[in-house]
């Protein structure tokens, strides 16, 4: 009799314990590094030859913001530059009418929050279209941008701006975004940052001066 009850309780307990559809939140891996990219599939990157990168990283920490040129920031900018030149683009000065512009932003949020791509455009260090030679213009997306949830681990954002083809409604379009999440912690090294930049480009074969059959 007693054995039967023990067996029954074990059985019922196991059944009820197994009923969850989703894994526990601790298994959902939200705090791990993630490299998310989105590219405009309609753009032909072989039509672009030159690029310029903003020489600072726009840094946002809660309500505070700054333009930073720390060694890590410079390494980040240099790595983006080397990836672009590796894809056949020529690095030129920002006042040399580049075909593409690159803005880099680092966001260190201390609270879990949801933000939409583009809200950081007004912060110092993120250069508006008039800085690139398009006064009165705004930035725009040719594709539907996906929201990104950011955590205390932070996010680095790379925006690739189309300076060659401003739209008739006075917009300079973003042709590629990269969101690298989980970098702004003490546990990640400079090499991690550089590796993530490489991965962002690796998963976007479309960015190249020669035609590719991208995914």
């Amino acid at each position: 009799m007693k054995t039967k009850f023990i067996l029954l309780f074990l059985g019922v307990g196991l059944m009820l314990a197994s009923c969850s559809k989703y894994p526990p939140s601790s298994d959902r891996l939200l705090e791990d590094m993630a490299i998310y990219t989105k590219v405009d599939l309609n753009v032909k990157f072989e039509e672009y030859k030159t690029f310029a990168i903003v020489p600072v990283v726009s840094y946002i920490d809660g309500k505070d913001s700054a333009s930073i040129t720390t060694p890590n920031a410079i390494s980040l900018l240099n790595r983006i530059t080397s990836n672009m030149t590796g894809r056949g683009f020529k690095s030129v000065a920002t006042n040399a009418h580049p075909d593409l512009g690159i803005n880099v932003t680092a966001i260190k949020n201390t609270n879990t929050s949801v933000y939409y791509p583009g809200w950081y455009w007004g912060y110092p260090g993120y250069y508006p279209p008039n800085w690139w030679g398009y006064p009165g213009y705004g930035y725009g997306y040719p594709y539907y941008p996906t929201y990104v949830v950011t955590y205390s681990t932070g996010t680095v954002i790379i925006d690739l701006v189309d300076l060659k083809n401003p739209t008739a409604d006075n917009k300079v379009m973003i042709r590629w975004n990269a969101y690298i999440r989980g970098l702004l912690t003490t546990t990640h090294t400079e090499n991690d940052i550089l590796r993530c930049v490489d991965q962002a480009f690796a998963q976007t074969p479309q960015i190249k001066t020669t035609p590719v059959s991208g995914k």
């Binding site: 298994d27 891996l29 590219v39 996906t146």
Partner: peptide
Amino acid sequence: QRVSQSYGYQTYYGDDGSAITSTNY
């Protein structure tokens, strides 16, 4: 029944030009 497993860093591609590299479950 449910079967599940965590995996290390892998890259997944969407139809809309998106791609994500991360650990996955």
